[in-house]
Design a protein around this nucleic acid. Sequence first.
DNA 1: TGACAAACGGAACCATCGTTCCGTATAGTA
DNA 2: TACTATACGGAACGATGGTTCCGTTTGTCA
Lengths: 223, 223
Amino acid sequence: MSTGTTGREQPEAATETAERHLRADAQRNRERILEAATTLMANYGIDVPIDEIAQLAQVGVGTVYRNFPTKGALFEALLMARLRPLLVAARSAAAADDPGDAFVTFVRRLSDEFADFKALADAMAASGIDLSVAKNEISGDLIAAVTELLERAQQAGRIRPDVTISDVSAMMAGLGHTDSSFMDPPQRQRCVALVCDSLLVGARSVLPQGEPAAPPPPAGGWR
Amino acid sequence: MSTGTTGREQPEAATETAERHLRADAQRNRERILEAATTLMANYGIDVPIDEIAQLAQVGVGTVYRNFPTKGALFEALLMARLRPLLVAARSAAAADDPGDAFVTFVRRLSDEFADFKALADAMAASGIDLSVAKNEISGDLIAAVTELLERAQQAGRIRPDVTISDVSAMMAGLGHTDSSFMDPPQRQRCVALVCDSLLVGARSVLPQGEPAAPPPPAGGWR
DNA sequence: TGACAAACGGAACCATCGTTCCGTATAGTA
DNA sequence: TACTATACGGAACGATGGTTCCGTTTGTCA
């Protein structure tokens, strides 16, 4: 009766297309929410409570749910925003003159993305070893692009011919899950280099300098 | 420490030493609990509810808590049981004639352990990139043993001299987190081989055959 | 066999978190 | 300025899961 219909009243969910003339404050809030969610999910992964996102965005939880029907929807919106440029990168890598180098560049880029946005690795873990982090089309396109990148690099003799896209996906997933929050950037780069070395033909990277030497993590060590 | 906190009345917690004359039924139940917890945590990781463990063990939750003051304690008990043989393996690998081969064998073994006991990978993720999955002594011993294994394999010229124990730990963690539940055994073996190839000097394994669907890699391995 | 400490089961408690509901506030408009 | 659709906040709800409590059962020993 008074308030909307029996169902929810969110406008077209998170669809950016058909921007149904949002009220100015609503538009502002939506952006705040996206920003807050990005910040928090980048650092803490998918596990941040909605309440915290709402708090950081200076908004009530209701407002979050008015914009995104579900936590998953919010997450997926963020994910897509991350995946899209990654797809562009993969495609241009596949078209590069030297697909071998382009492959390495792409892997490095992906690793950076994992580090910058922890939730991406979470999503990858949840959906198995392939790159299809969401049921969205983008993920399919992404894996297609990486497949082509791989094939071209193999044709160019730069990547081992016995390596499959599954191998690549699995290694990428592993990279993402070498819990980035515990790994400093130099260490991450070393891992990227090692992974690439395992896939490339006759490659033996110079590993970027990491921590001084010994393993002793600050006193207490484990935990 | 864990024992004798002010609160509960559990007998020495999970300490097997000083087996305080458990009543026959209590002993039986304790074993049932450990067995059930192993089964469930192996398949579902740390996230299995205590209730489910209790149910499978055919005991009440109270009985679980009488044996293990906390879910974490139960988990740690299982973990130690897993880590101990792994430690033995690492030590004997470090003492092997060919530390290069022994290293590969150990990595394979570790990977199997991840697959057999999903919770191990969970623990590793939670504790960062090093092997120290718990604050227990065993984990310290384990990383020490692996360090020695690494050094000996490097002295023998089998592992790249620029690889550090941190690198090894990180790659192992990645291996564990290439979510084993989504990866069939052949794929896992391929990843193990790739990781080893990245660490060893001049190695290019023949990757074990994986799934049939993917791009046919029968091109044969490298030497 | 009787008594009692030891052990048991599982309801209840508490905290967390996703989601919904609804009374209230306000941007946009006439 | 007044009116109303739109949007807001946040309390409340329901599900889940770890932990505690306590009345009841049972193994053990004399």
